[in-house]
Amino acid sequence: MEMAVFLLFAALALVSSLVVVLHRNPIYAVMSLVVTFVSIAVMFVLLGAPFLAAVQVLVYTGAILVLFLFVIMLLNVSGDSSRGFDLHKALAAVVAAGFALLLLTLFWGRYHGLDLSPLQESDVALKPLARALLDTYLLPFEIVGLLLLAAVTAATVLARRSQDTSS
């Protein structure tokens, strides 16, 4: 059962992520990235992190990608300027494949054959996670909050139309 779910969503993630990088229409890219992110959320559930899965869907697909869509439609971004298959893309494909293979051999060599024990009810409890987040890692948590504030300010300043004070 678990294996079947994994295989289904792994295939879905791979196919949709390929569509993300290969499709010329950015709207399609965002839509298929939604599928990829939801598949990764399923992986989180399988790995015993349902909270992360919910946050993943809520933050990534529910907010970040909607923002992308908004910007794409606002700017009316059309397809890519480079068409067809050229040397540049061939090189990119080689580099990407090489990197993926390198990672794959590293991971496979070191971690192959390690089985995970089935999940217990206590493994997915939320209270320990909350304690870790707001107690053990309180300082990083606050710093991330500060970072978000800085990002909001920066985004507002950047995207704001200049008020014609200088020109």
Binding site: P50, F51, L58, V66, M73
Partner: peptide, 20 residues
Amino acid sequence: AETGVLLLLALASLGVYSLV
């Protein structure tokens, strides 16, 4: 599910895609 409301909000947030 222990993530109850969060799950609901996550699923509800997918609704905008159909409109867009």
